[in-house]
C-alpha cells in the first residue's frame, strides 16, 4: 500500500488535483491532498515503531500466557504450554511483587517532589537578578546529567563509605554524625540521592529555560508595583513554570517507575538491596537469574499498565491545572 502511495503522491501535486480525481474515483476523493507524502514521511517511524515497540509488545503478551512445564525426567528439556492467566496469578500472589511495588511507591513519592522542588528552587535562584556566578552555577548543576547512572552509582558507592568518604569526614569535622547510608532503612536515601544528583540538573535547566520565556515587562511591572523578589517568584514566576514543571514532573515519575541501574549497581555494595528490591529488578531476576521469561513478561505488562494509568492521571491533572491557571 505504501509503495503505491509513494508513486502516486508526487503525481498528485505536480500535475494538479484533476488528475488525482480521474485516477482515484469516489473513495480516493475523500483522501486529503498530499496525504501520500505524509505517509512517506511517517513510514520510517512507523516501521521502526513496529519493530521496536509493537511486535515486542505483542510477543511479550504472548509470552505472558505461556509457561514451561518439565516433562518428567531430569535431563529432558521442558516443553512450552499455554497456561492462561497462571503467570499473572503467580506474580500477583507473590509477596515480593507487592513489597517491591511498595518500595517503588515510597521511592517515587519521596524522590519526585524532592527533585521537582529542588529544581524549581534552583531555577528561581538562577533567575534572580543579582545572583553571582550564574553561568558557572548553571553549568555545574547541569554537569551530572552527562554522567551515566552506572558511573554515578559507582562514585556515590565510594562516597557512602564512612571510613573513606570526604562527605563523612567533612560532616564529622562539623560535629555531625551522618548515618551509614548503605545499611538498613537508609538505603532508600542512598538510592534517592544518586537519582536526585543525576536528575535535578536537567529539570533545573528546563524550568530555568521556561522562566526565561517570561516577558521581562511582566516582571518589571510587578517590581514597580512594589513586589520584592520573593513575591515575584511566588506570584509571577511560579505560575508561569507550572506547565513545564508538570511535564518534566511526568518524565520524572516515569523515570522513577523505571528505576533499575542505580539500585542494581548499588546492590553489590550492600545487603540492604536484594534482588527483588524494585519491580524492574524483580523482572530482571525472573527473566535472567530464574530464566523465566513468562513470569517476567507478565510482571512487565502489569507494570507497563500501571505506568500508563498513572501517567494519564498526571496528564489529566495537568489539563485541570492548566485550565485553572488560564
Amino acid at each position: 500500500m505504501s509503495s503505491a502511495l509513494r508513486e502516486r503522491a508526487p503525481a498528485t501535486h505536480d500535475r494538479g488535483a484533476g488528475r488525482a480525481d480521474r485516477l482515484g474515483g469516489a473513495r480516493r476523493r475523500r483522501m486529503p491532498r498530499h496525504a501520500g507524502f505524509a505517509y512517506l514521511l511517517l513510514a520510517p517511524a512507523l516501521i521502526l515503531f513496529s519493530i521496536a515497540f509493537l511486535i515486542p509488545i505483542g510477543y511479550s503478551i504472548g509470552l505472558s500466557f505461556m509457561g514451561s512445564r518439565s516433562t518428567g525426567s531430569a535431563f529432558a528439556p521442558p516443553e512450552t504450554v499455554f497456561v492462561q492467566l497462571d503467570n499473572y496469578a503467580g506474580v500477583l500472589a507473590d509477596p515480593t511483587f507487592w513489597s517491591s511495588l511498595g518500595r517503588l511507591g515510597v521511592f517515587a513519592i519521596v524522590m519526585v517532589p524532592l527533585m521537582m522542588g529542588t529544581a524549581i528552587l534552583l531555577a528561581l535562584l538562577l533567575d534572580l537578578p543579582r545572583v553571582r556566578a550564574r553561568a558557572f552555577s548553571r553549568t555545574a548543576i547541569f554537569l551530572p546529567y552527562a554522567v551515566p547512572s552506572v558511573i554515578a552509582a559507582l562514585m556515590w558507592g565510594f562516597l557512602y563509605v564512612p571510613q573513606i568518604s570526604p562527605v563523612y569526614q567533612f560532616a564529622s569535622g562539623l560535629g555531625i554524625e551522618l548515618p551509614a547510608l548503605l545499611t538498613g532503612g537508609f538505603v532508600q536515601v542512598a538510592i534517592v540521592n544518586v537519582v536526585l544528583w543525576g536528575g535535578i540538573g536537567f529539570n533545573t535547566i528546563i524550568i530555568y529555560t521556561a522562566l526565561q520565556s517570561l516577558p521581562k515587562e511582566q516582571i518589571d511591572a510587578a517590581r514597580i508595583d512594589g513586589c520584592d523578589e520573593l513575591r515575584i517568584a511566588r506570584f509571577v514566576k511560579l505560575p508561569h513554570v507550572v506547565p513545564a514543571t508538570l511535564l518534566t514532573g511526568l518524565f520524572s515519575v516515569i523515570g522513577a517507575l523505571q528505576i533499575y541501574s542505580e539500585p542494581q549497581m548499588l546492590s553489590t555494595l550492600t545487603t540492604s538491596i536484594d534482588s527483588t528490591f524494585f519491580p524492574l529488578m524483580r523482572v530482571y531476576r525472573d527473566a535472567f537469574a530464574h530464566d523465566d521469561l513468562n513470569a517476567a513478561s507478565a510482571a512487565s505488562i502489569l507494570l507497563a499498565l500501571a505506568t500508563v494509568l498513572l501517567s494519564l492521571l498526571v496528564l489529566g491533572l495537568r489539563t485541570v491545572l492548566a485550565r485553572r491557571t488560564r
Partner: peptide
C-alpha cells in the same frame, strides 16, 4: 543460580533484621 540468588536475598534480609 536460583538458589544462590535466593540465599543472597535471604541472608541479606536476615543481616538487616
Amino acid at each position: 543460580q536460583v538458589a544462590f540468588t535466593a540465599i543472597g536475598d535471604a541472608f541479606g534480609n536476615a543481616f538487616e533484621g
